[in-house]
Design a protein around this nucleic acid. Structure first.
Length: 480
DNA sequence: CTGGGGAGGGGGCCC
DNA sequence: GGGGCCCCCTCCCCA
């Protein structure tokens, strides 16, 4: 006989003990603020603490103290509350930092929820567009980042009273069951200007903080991205919440806060427990939160984050897509998707020549042309125009540039020949398992006169613009 | 310390 | 919607 409420009551008791500082055997110091907790709970919740406490297990009789400076006390409080309650209080303002902290603490469930929170925040609903149109006489400045998301660990349903303490413009979403089998979204209306400016400050402060306190920079969260990519790859193509399917509009628009119910396993939601706000919603089938396409980073975008606002002169609605993380508004969804990468740090385009990653393909192409292909027919030293007769391409590692013959002579690097075969091939980023198109050397060898100045990686190639085109076929960025 | 240039990055927009 | 181009801004390096 299994009592479904036992887990919840047990955790409730542990949480109560924590609050009363009973049996707490671990202190966590976060930027000067001390959090008390139980080692066994932390051990069970975080890979980071598991490693830390494993090392400290020999001194188990001594109280353990952990110190963090990589995130704020507020962020750790959110995470600790989740550990002891199964509820993750996410907002548009804290989701990035919570996700960073969860990454640091190796709490994959929290990371997943944050990702889902972001994804769902970007879900644009066709219904909401319609709704927006119907509300077009209102001042529209949509942004849903103020939504509060509670992440339930599965054994308790977080009720979301329709008239909570939260402001009416906060959306509500519910995710429950295995693999987010249920998802209901209640759109929020817009934040006021004060909130917007606050959001700007948050964005700026986050940028600064990321640099200052070492929050994951793009390169630091590569595991994130890879997991994102894995998620995307694993997501069944073609099954996704169309807006009509999954986004439910609360006609009153004043539903309470957002509630995520995350199911851990198939019985994530105990049978018999009510699912607030679901009764009046249409049923949702399993997996509806999945992205529409496997390659969709942001499956869709809630109008809470943003849709639009004004009527064009021709009486047609002029769509606008509002970034959930800042005040930026774009006309196209694709532009918003592109813009969001500057918030998520996603850099899906690696340069196969040097490994540097870019958020945009055109930036990668530009980088490759400039750095690795020496496309500019300009002497790098004297800035004069060079042709195949008046200049040569210099290869310095993976970098290429052109020098005129005069500058080459001045540099004294015009008479040393090397065999291209001795040049080590450029190193490619390993994470991209694509067939490399960087084949510099072999095909060009017959056309290029290689000269070296004696340094280890400086190579001079005779410029032949007609050959450049051939080279460009051989040396290409990682563009498939 | 300062100014110039290169490189990266973001936005608008066209195809 | 993706690719690509142009423009602008910022950062960094170097003279």
């Amino acid at each position: 006989m299994e009592i479904s409420s036992h887990q919840f009551h047990l955790l409730q008791q542990l949480n109560e003990q924590r609050r009363q500082d009973l049996f707490c055997d671990c202190s966590i110091l976060v930027e000067g603020k001390v959090f008390k907790a139980h080692r066994n709970v932390l051990f069970a919740s975080s890979g980071y603490f598991k490693m830390l406490l494993s090392q400290c297990s020999k001194e188990a009789s001594q109280p353990t103290t952990a110190t963090f400076q990589a995130f704020s006390p507020e962020t750790f409080s959110v995470i600790l509350d989740f550990v002891y309650s199964g509820k993750l209080s996410l907002t548009g303002q804290n989701v990035i930092e919570v996700m960073s902290a969860a990454s640091y603490l190796q709490m994959t469930d929290v990371i997943s929820v944050c990702k889902t929170f972001i994804k769902s925040s970007l879900d644009i609903s066709e219904k909401e567009k319609d709704r927006y149109f119907s509300l077009s006489d209102k001042e529209v400045n949509s942004n849903g980042v103020e939504r509060l998301c509670l992440y339930g660990a599965g054994w308790k349903v977080e009720s979301s009273p329709p008239h909570s303490h939260l402001s009416p413009d906060q959306g509500t979403c519910i995710v429950s069951g295995n693999s987010w089998s249920n998802f209901s979204y209640y759109p929020s209306t817009q934040r006021n200007a004060q909130q917007l400016s606050k959001q700007d400050q948050w964005q700026d402060s986050m940028k600064k903080a990321s640099r200052h306190i070492g929050l994951p920079q793009p390169s630091d969260i590569s595991h994130y991205k890879s997991s994102k990519l894995e998620d995307r790859a694993s997501e069944p193509a073609g099954h996704a919440p169309t807006s009509e399917e999954d986004v439910q509009i609360d006609s009153e628009g004043d539903s309470g806060h957002s509630v995520y119910q995350y199911g851990q396993g198939s019985d994530a939601l105990p049978r018999g427990l009510p699912m607030p706000q679901q009764g009046h919603e249409s049923p949702h089938s399993a997996g509806k939160l999945k992205s529409p396409k496997g390659d969709e980073q942001y499956p869709s975008m809630h109008s809470v984050l943003g849709v639009m606002g004004s009527w064009a002169d021709d009486d047609l609605p002029r769509m606008r897509f509002k970034c959930p993380f800042c005040t930026h508004v774009v006309k196209r969804k694709a532009d918003l998707k592109r813009h969001l990468r500057c918030h998520t740090g996603e850099r899906p385009y690696p340069c196969e020549a040097c490994g540097k990653r870019f958020s945009r393909l055109d930036h990668l192409s530009s980088h490759f042309r400039t750095i690795h292909q020496a496309c500019k027919p300009i002497c790098r030293k004297c800035k004069r125009h060079v042709t195949e007769m008046t200049g040569q391409v210099v290869q310095e590692g993976t970098r290429r540039y052109r020098l005129c013959n005069e500058c080459l002579s001045e540099a004294g690097i015009d008479s040393i020949r090397i065999d291209l075969d001795t040049e080590p091939p450029p190193e490619f980023p390993l994470e991209e398992d694509k067939e490399s198109s960087w084949n510099y050397g072999e095909d060009n060898k017959s056309d290029i006169e290689i000269v070296e100045d004696g340094s280890t990686d400086l190579v001079i190639q005779q410029v032949d613009d007609s050959d450049d085109e051939a080279e460009e076929k051989d040396i290409k960025p990682n563009v498939s």
